[in-house]
Amino acid sequence: MPTARELRPLPVPPGERAPTVLPALRRALDGDGPALLPVDAAGPDDDVLRALGAGTPLEPGEDDPADPTALVIATSGSTGTPKGVLLPAAALRASATATHRHLGGPGRWLLAMPAHHVAGIQVLVRSLVAGTDPVAVDTAGGFRPDRFAAAAERCLADPGRHYTALVPTQLRRLLDDGGAGLAALRAFDAVLLGGAATPPALRERAAAAGVRVVTTYGMSETAGGCVYDGTPLDGVRVHVEAAADGSGPVALSGPTLARGYRRGSGASPFRDGWFRTGDLGRLADGRLEVLGRADDVIITGGVNVAPVLVERILAEHPGVREVCVLGVDDPEWGQAVVAAVVPADPAAPPPVAELRAAVRDRAGAAGAPKRVEFLAELPLRGPGKPDRRALRATLGR
């Protein structure tokens, strides 16, 4: 019987040095060596390393000689419990190939987010598949438009097609700053935008500025984004168990799907070749609209409210820079709708009455926030998702 392959940590340096992991990543994709667990070289999480068994062999069912597990991506999802997503080499390559086909062909990539998360590591995988050398942004001290511009200049110097991937917060900063960063962004053939819900107003603003944005939906379990601008990539299938209003739980299938979870136990969302995402959505003319996590739905006074729909309305107000909506326990309503708002001008936040009225007029009285809290910034987790658990701990009073 062959010896089981080891799961070995892959410390990924931040910023410009991230591409130094490319040789190890190439070997993992070729099955020549251990499976890799990407971690932040600046401070690996010991709890994650222990929970996922870094330095120990892969267990039965976690590998296949014909299609080796190349990466194990650590994710806590919305629960906070560490899980390791087993990504076979074939799934990673299928994702990269389908992305290039959708965008118009292979190109050179600019890495602008941490490469120990799936969105960042996939920029490196796509570069390997395309046979191009990626360029990485210097992110020491955080994302800065001037550093993005400097890295983009190096990336764009080569002929051919050029791509990058951002989270909405990064796009918003580039749009707000204008100047060289925004000018560079306009030169990319496509800017993948994912990691968190994209407010329609932000996308419209980017389009007006000449930025070619492609919104993505996916997760570690699907090797990153697998639905672009609502359309599944080649080979990807989407199913929505629709209720009377046309919305329901979203399930995904296809060649980009993970093998399962490292040391998986209990009920699995992987069944019969499908991954049950835990998200709600609806299909219209073959296009998927994601309505947010099922467990984020707020039940207030017996009425279900989807936070993402309230967020979209609030984000259209000119006085709102960023927003996150969540439900907090309330003795009268069961849950109360609370909006955490980052104002466009901290010295002149938008009138709360205007925000409530906008939601009430378009989404009904139940969705109107019972409370609006103005914050300097939203707490984030992963590559750029609002940290709802941290917000709930702060606002659930």
Rank of each mutant, 00 (worst) to 15 (best):
Asp67Ser: 01
Val211Met: 04
Gly292Asn: 04
Pro200Trp: 09
Val297Pro: 06
Arg388Ala: 00
Pro82Lys: 07
Gly396Cys: 12
Tyr261Gln: 06
Asp272Ile: 08
Glu59Arg: 15
Leu378Asp: 00
Pro68Lys: 02
Ala242Ser: 14
Leu52Lys: 07
Pro159Phe: 11
Thr394Glu: 15
Thr139Ile: 15
Glu221Ala: 03
Pro2Cys: 03
Arg17Met: 09
Gly194Phe: 10
Gly260Met: 11
Gly55Arg: 04
Asp158Tyr: 14
Val236Lys: 03
Leu37Cys: 05
Phe188Trp: 02
Leu103Gly: 05
Leu7Pro: 00
Arg126Asp: 03
His162Lys: 05
Ala89Lys: 00
Ala24Thr: 13
Ala136Ser: 07
Asp279Leu: 06
Asp285Leu: 08
Leu37Gln: 02
Asp285Gln: 11
Gly286Glu: 14
Leu124Pro: 00
Leu192His: 00
Arg362Val: 07
Ala196Asn: 08
His162Trp: 09
Ala357Leu: 13
Leu185Lys: 02
Gly384Glu: 03
Gly120Asp: 04
Ala18Lys: 05
Gly53Lys: 01
Val191Gln: 04
Ala206Gly: 04
Pro106Phe: 03
Gly264Tyr: 06
Asp67His: 03
Pro44Asp: 05
Arg126Ile: 06
Leu87Cys: 05
Ala18Phe: 03
Val320Gln: 10
Val21Asn: 12
Pro199Arg: 02
Ala28Pro: 02
Leu175Ala: 14
Ala51Glu: 08
Arg293Pro: 11
Pro82Arg: 07
Pro60Gln: 06
His239Phe: 08
Ala96Ser: 12
Gly292Gln: 04
Ala336Arg: 15
Arg293Asp: 11
Trp333Ile: 05
Arg93Asn: 12
Thr97Phe: 07
Arg259Gly: 14
Asp189Gly: 11
Pro232Tyr: 06
Gly43Pro: 00
Pro200Ala: 09
Tyr261Ile: 03
Asp245Glu: 06
Thr79Asp: 13
Gly246Glu: 04
Leu128Val: 13
Arg397Asn: 12
Pro343Met: 09
Pro60Met: 11
Val341Asp: 02
Cys226Ile: 14
Val211Asn: 00
Ala393Met: 10
Glu16Asn: 06
Gly131Cys: 01
Gly260Glu: 08
Gly210Ala: 10
Ala187Lys: 13
Ala390Trp: 03
Asp40Tyr: 06
Leu156Cys: 04
Asp146Lys: 12
Asp345Glu: 15
Gly107Ala: 10
Gln170Lys: 07
Ser265Met: 09
Gly230Cys: 10
Glu311Thr: 05
Gly53Phe: 12
Asp32Ala: 15
Thr81Cys: 01
Leu128Lys: 07
Asn304Met: 11
Asp296Asn: 12
Lys370Asp: 10
Leu36Met: 10
Gly84Trp: 02
Ala184Pro: 11
Val211Trp: 01
Gly77Ser: 07
His116Val: 11
Asp189Tyr: 04
Thr215Cys: 12
Pro23His: 12
Ala207Arg: 14
Val72Lys: 08
Leu257Ile: 05
Arg392Val: 04
Leu291Glu: 08
Gly142Trp: 04
Pro82Ser: 07
Arg205Asn: 13
Arg360Lys: 15
Thr97Lys: 08
Val297Ser: 06
Thr256Glu: 10
Asp64Cys: 08
Asn304Glu: 15
Asp229Ala: 06
Ala201Cys: 07
Thr79Val: 11
Glu354Asp: 15
Tyr261Asn: 00
Leu375Trp: 08
Arg271Ser: 12
Asp229Val: 01
Asp176Arg: 09
Asp133Gln: 13
Gly210Asn: 04
Gly334Ser: 14
Asp40Thr: 07
Cys155Trp: 01
Gly364Cys: 05
Glu241Gln: 13
Gly396Gln: 10
Leu10Gly: 00
Leu283Asn: 11
Tyr163Phe: 13
Ala207Lys: 05
